[in-house]
Design a protein around this nucleic acid. Sequence first.
RNA 1: GCCGAUGUGGCGAAAUGGCAGACGCAACGGACUUAAAAUCCGUUGGGCUUAACGGCCCGUGCCGGUUCGAGUCCGGCCAUCGGCACCA
Length: 868
Amino acid sequence: MNERRKPYPFDHLELKWQAVWDETRAFHAPNPGEPGFDPAKPKFYVLDMFPYPSGAGLHVGHPEGYTATDIIARYKRLNGFNVLHPMGWDAFGLPAEQYAIKTGQHPAITTRENIAKFKTQLKRIGFSYDWEREINTTDPAYYKWTQWIFLQIYNSWFNPGTKKAEPISTYRGADPDSVRLAYVAEVPVNWCPELGTVLANEEVIDGKSEVGGFAVVRRPMRQWMLRITAFAERLADELEDLDWPHGIKLLQRNWIGRSEGAEIEFAVAAVYDRRPEGPPQDPAVRDRRYSIRVFTTRHDTIYGANYMVLAPEHPLVDELTSPERKEEVARYRAEVAAKSDLERTDLAKEKTGVFIGAHAINPVNQEKIPIWIADYVLMGYGTGAVMGVPGHDERDLEFARKFNLEVLPVVQAPGKTAGESIGFVEDGVAINSPIINGLATPEAKKKILGWLEEQGVGRSNVRYKLRDWLFSRQRYWGEPFPVVWEDGKHRSLGEDDLPLEPPELEDFRPTGTGEPPLAKAKDWIRYSETATRETNTMPQWAGSCWYYLRFCDPVNANRFVGGDQERYWMGGAQAGGVDLYIGGVEHAVLHLLYARFWHKVLFDLGHVSKAEPFQRLVNQGMILGEDNRKMSKRWGNVIDPLDVIAIYGADAFRCYEMFMGPLEQMKPWSMKGVEGVARFLARVWRLMMEENQAGEWVLSAEVQESELKKSELKILHATIKKVTADIEALSFNTAIAQMMILVNALTNAPVKSIGALRTLLLLLNPFAPHIASELWQILGEKFSDSKGGIVAQQWPVHDERFLVEDEVEIVLQVNGKVRDRISVPIDATDADLEALSRANDKVQAAAAGKTIRKVVVVPKKLVNVVAT
RNA sequence: GCCGAUGUGGCGAAAUGGCAGACGCAACGGACUUAAAAUCCGUUGGGCUUAACGGCCCGUGCCGGUUCGAGUCCGGCCAUCGGCACCA
């Protein structure tokens, strides 16, 4: 290994301070009612996205966000906040289970080992977590409450009147099971025949399994679903007031996918008319009226609707298909069912579909239009049926061309002929549409909708792309559902039955039939003579949906979080919730949407005090390898923080992570860059320390009580100001640059003022806490004061008086180009500046032969002479 | 295809509409050293010009606009990255 002498003894002092912090519980945040709790202090909750403890350990990407939050946490503490800064483990999940399948080692053991490794790494970086609040989603004392929250969801329904989740007991309908927020449905899942198991969507990449690359097909199975769609409107609307990156809000909004439009009923032309045997004799069948509802955002184009398409799975298909088309329809539906999602959504492929032998009536003109089924219409969105308007919808146009259906323009784009307006038209004027001819699109929509409403065949309607959340997995390593089945019906266990622990299994392998591995535990499954346990488990997202709440009160055995604790950390007069949440963009929609959903349910039921959990969100950018590629085993460019720390120390590691560039930006790693930052810290060290004859570091003789020169005072206070503002703005790279400027300036001074050094150490402390603590202590011992450790200090405040200057440099421009720079007294008037500028040699030279038209004076900055 | 982000030296980057390139890396030169490492000091966007001090021009992806003045604001392109993708 690297035998090079260390530029300062970081290894010794870093381990020393980490031990001190542990022993003194330096970063423990007291809860209301605990000793040491000061109600006068404002709270600050700064949260990291807790990691999945994989076997590979942390790489340098993880600690980027963690370092940022740690700087904020340390900074806020010195500013008098009671800071909640916790860490834990999102430890249920596939890799541990896959490892168990391969080796037979129980996932709990793998998980324990991985957590130990992660924790060692995090501690070596010197993060100021309150480790007394550490949580682990696989701990029964934790997932007891994950299961408890599931029961709250299970025992609730969404009241459309109040737009709130309410206890199921308030539901007045006949079948509560049909409205619960957790329900069972037969839905298509990703089935991988090769692996013999079901996969989550995240585990399927381009229609193949992430593990092994085997084909994945859709197959209907009984699944637990959470009714997140009921909250679509609130999840979209309530994003508004959150202090999140604009892009992330947009991503969530798009994911939720709100569309405003109309639902329109198309009557079905008498089905029996076309049957060879004539009208059925049974009056119940003969008189049956069918109608098909479509959803459209372009109701203004309804005159152009000359066919209709149902999703192949549409429930009316069986009843409407004419006998002579039955065979073909059945064949088409079978074909579609066999397709994977990939095949079905492959845009390059041609449109397919079959006519089902029935017709619908267009309500605006009473025309009989053919009904088709085609897989470009999805059962899961809208009503599963569309009116085909080939004139103004690209997909319909493609379909119409394939099957030679008529294409009729009904909207004319501005500046184009009717014929040219075929295709997708954003806005235009209605044509060939008697009721709305000549109206601009928005008015046409309004008028036709009014007309349809009058006829009783249409109403305005809002639809969302968001689907209900498929909440069950056929896995071992997850939270079991607190549910039992009896006589084909499910019912929940009581709170007293929690935690419901999974059975001990020797064999974690999938059964091959799609039945979950828990089904192998025959004794465990048997709940009573007549009832059996649910064998699915919850997905990995479950534990992370509420962990930020558990951090507020991590060991409470009686409640998922205590009321006082929740109100203190998550409530408050301000916006409330987590004050700062930093993590990767990869969670922009899933985790962040799921957690918001659970939080809203808990809020509606009165268990938490605010409707939103994360007030401010920041995404750190990905750290690439030195080769500018994503870090991965495949490229061999993964960097272990511990390897960096062994050479340069934790402080250098932390500072480099922040100095690389803006937090939110993607940027490549550079070992040379770490070295540069390490040199900076070594300079800080040598500002105060020198080696004696024996090779020991001792306080430098240059460190003395002394008055600062004016120029030194200025740079010191400019640094306090900039570092403070930059930390507030999470602009850590420029904060470090400013401290480098200060250190360079101090290095050149013959005498090092203790006051200036102390201030520097306070500013540096959030970034490089070990070296700052050590040097602070050394100064304290030498100049025996009673200030205490650096963690007990106040953040410095700059004094604007030291920043004002007697003289300022003024830039002289002619026509916007710099011609000279002059130094003038700070109180020079605009007239003075103009006169000086006009008299300046270089200005005159540049303006020679021209007439001065105008002189722009920017006080204390520049003068621009406009000459032509 | 749609949505979003980003384009500045050899590299990471900095710049409330007002001196483009702070700070750092790399490179080069010097000091120290028997020597090297470490450290310290200096130079470093490009071009032209001058014996030299210096002087001049160009330069923030491309084209245009607004402005006394644009990396920054507006319009239109191009490229890279990310997300969504038959959502009616």
